[in-house]
Amino acid sequence: MSIWVRCLSVFSVVVLHIAIVPVFFLGVSTPITLVVVAVVWTALLGFPAVLFPLLSVVVICDSILFGAFQFASLYFVLVAYAVSFFMRRTLLGERSGLGFFILAIFAGGAAGGYVFLNQLLIGITKESYPFGDMLLDSFLAFTLFFLLAPLLRWFELVIRTLRQEAQFAIK
């Protein structure tokens, strides 16, 4: 049963990424939904467990939107690893209020980093370096984090309840 809830959460993220978030967040130059989802899922599931749902979402979105897997999508794995790395060393996940806020900032930073990576991949020129885009995307990802985190957390609670797992497992 929990596998269906997992599929539903993956499904929701894809629909959010393709059909909802780009409509509201006009002018955004980053797949902020995927960046935020990578951060939230890693915080909730831990690094090795996040790979399967995260990569499913990335492969589905890339295949629908581009017809090919994108090099830039490797960035989401890096983000997930970085979140796991810092959570383990700073015990961010155990401090719910502060940890939540810091993770939101992390999501914002990761969105800005995506713009930087994208510029590296296509070549930076002095005229086109998009500092404005970086700031805007960071802010939007920071905002989106507060909308997506409760939704994804609810999905995980349902899954854990169905699996009858402990609610406060250490990642």
Binding site: I18, V23, V28, P31, A72
Partner: peptide, 9 residues
């Protein structure tokens, strides 16, 4: 249009 996507949307 039912979906938008791309590096810069």
């Amino acid at each position: 249009v039912v979906g938008l996507g791309g590096l810069a949307q």
